[in-house]
Design a protein around this nucleic acid. Structure first.
Lengths: 338, 338
DNA sequence: ATTCTTAATGTAACCGGTTACATTTTGGAG
DNA sequence: CTCCAAAATGTAACCGGTTACATTAAGAAT
């Protein structure tokens, strides 16, 4: 493996000159002739600077971290799918490498940000939280100066940037749509609120919508799923069907729950949307291809992922002096299911 | 930031002793009392060794790379979804970090393995190829000694380990199933064969199945989709419907294509499976929740991802002396669509 | 008490870059 | 021709670990 000293010798200049050549952005001048000479040698020997050495001396890693829980569920969720796709897209123009940092459950509790992040060698991180990490974020903000971007988690932070989508508006839109269609009884399959801020917010927004639009929230048409997934939606709806208490329309905290609910309804040949209308949240790619296709609220996940990376790199390169908040608006996509 | 020298001073020992303490696996003895003392100091000051410095002096990065094309489509495909989930799971027991290395299209052509991989600082890589990278692999194998594991790509390699699933068997099973059901005319929506080895293999296996099972491959019931996605399946099937040439059963090169095809059929109220049976390939999580649920061939993607990481780390730690090939068998999942 | 072996620790070179500071070169201006 | 500022380059210390080699301490054998 060739080192910078080898190259310096071959090019008949000093190591400093090579280093300067490698970093034109520092504005240290290298004579055009010398430059050409170095260029030739580097190209001839396929010289590539050693990452570790650069990291050590520059005190910077050129890596950014994408933090998720250590669970295979993550990749399987349309929500993360969208965000990750955006992050991939967003990192494209930069030279940074992407490290996927997965936090194990046991680490969430007694977390030390140094142990957690410093050892992973990153210049900054994007948190794709869906568990609540408030303690960890707090620790990072107070005991380190690591640039952090949070996605859809805009509470109690001081120096982290935040990219979020105001889902509340989306919920409002769904309910307005239901009311306009003349559906009187509207139920909700809620998400796991002890775990997810989003789940909490969606339910709050639902109650708010009831107030502003003037429909009643009947407790017998409410159910809190333990997970954001299909099985839970299926089970919940099955129970309702058996107990013969069905609303005219149902808003599900996400598409997976909605899909499960539809499944249960179709098993009993209950027609969607003629007997009951169903709407989801997230507009995962699959919503469109369901039969009937699913009305849903779209968060611009890819755009959000892109924005997060952009914001993070601005923080790392000090282009941004202070943390920012970027807000995205959701969009109601009306399809056959309502 | 505390360095090993700071800690050495505080613990009143030399840096070497600290380093030995940090690496018990080297079997260099540290006196129990000293050990205790060091332990206390490290814990008190939350000392964490600097990654870059370790990497530089150990000549090893503690990172493994997951190589994919630089495209957001990757995360959105159930195929990669499964593999990635397996990789995440597989890396769990180890301390290695996971770097997601994305190769841009323009780099695929005139690729230099050093420029591509050395600069990303990894100890080994898993290739989740779906474009053909034969030249790159060849270069890596000949001009570096980087440990490599390939997934579902078992041709022309010399020192890479390979994890693959013999999809051919799965195709055979699908066709056998069709024949047993008494379906005489069997068509296929093929995948993009100029791009994907798998697409090529699935079509070959289809032709082989026709021979061994004794059904005819009618060119008018064949179509090569340009991408492994829903839109292509939809378009292809729509065209067939318009031209009134439909087989009794159709095998699709993957689930996305199948989903698109089903969509087109349902639009025209053609009953599945009564008028036409549809089978897919991959058994993505969504296949089950389609209506009707989709018969499909399951590759044990997660297990494959896990195996790949395991194999790679064995290569890195020299536990494996020579490259290995791990073969998985696909499984036919029969559902409503056939 | 002396010698030998092994355990425990210390010293300093090394990994391969970056960069502060020093030095030499270059091209006007006076 | 001299002087000076700016450009170009060189020297060597430094980043924070690891480890070969040297040294000291401890315990056993003679």
């Amino acid at each position: 493996m060739l080192t910078i000293r080898d190259i310096a010798k071959k090019a008949e200049v000093s190591v400093a000159t090579i280093s300067r050549f490698l970093h034109p952005e520092t504005k240290h001048f290298v004579h055009p002739e010398t430059r050409e000479q170095i260029e030739k040698i580097i190209h001839k020997y396929h010289y590539i600077p050693n990452q570790a050495a650069q990291a050590l001396s520059k005190q910077t890693t050129n890596n950014i971290g994408m933090v998720t829980a250590f669970s295979t569920d993550v990749v399987k969720s349309p929500y993360y799918e969208g965000l990750i796709a955006g992050i991939i897209e967003g990192i494209r123009p930069f030279t940074h490498d992407l490290k996927w940092i997965m936090i194990k459950d046991e680490e969430i509790q007694n977390c030390n940000p140094k142990e957690l992040l410093q050892k992973h060698a990153v210049d900054g991180v994007v948190f794709l939280t869906w568990r609540l990490y408030p303690k960890l974020i707090h620790e990072i903000e107070h005991h380190s100066n690591l640039p952090v971007v949070l996605i859809n988690d805009y509470e109690s932070t001081i120096r982290s940037s935040i990219v979020y989508c105001d889902g509340g508006n989306g919920v409002q839109e769904v309910c307005k749509h239901f009311v306009q269609k003349g559906y009187k009884t509207i139920g909700m399959l809620r998400g796991p609120e002890y775990i997810s801020l989003d789940a909490q917010k969606r339910f709050k927004a639902f109650k708010r919508a009831a107030r502003t639009l003037g429909f009643r929230v009947d407790p017998k048409f409410l159910f809190e799923c333990q997970r954001f997934d299909e099985t839970d939606g299926y089970q919940a709806m099955k129970t309702w069907i058996e107990n013969q208490k069905l609303p005219r329309a149902i808003f599900c905290a996400n598409d997976d729950i909605a899909r499960g609910a539809m499944h249960a309804l179709q098993e009993k040949n209950i027609s969607i949307p003629d007997q009951i209308a169903v709407a989801g949240f997230d507009d995962s790619i699959r919503s469109e291809s369901l039969n009937p296709s699913l009305t849903s609220v779209r968060q611009p996940l890819e755009a959000m992922g892109r924005a997060a990376v952009q914001a993070l790199i601005n923080m790392i390169t000090k282009k941004a002096k202070s943390p920012i908040q970027i807000r995205f608006e959701p969009e109601l996509i009306v399809r056959q299911s309502t």
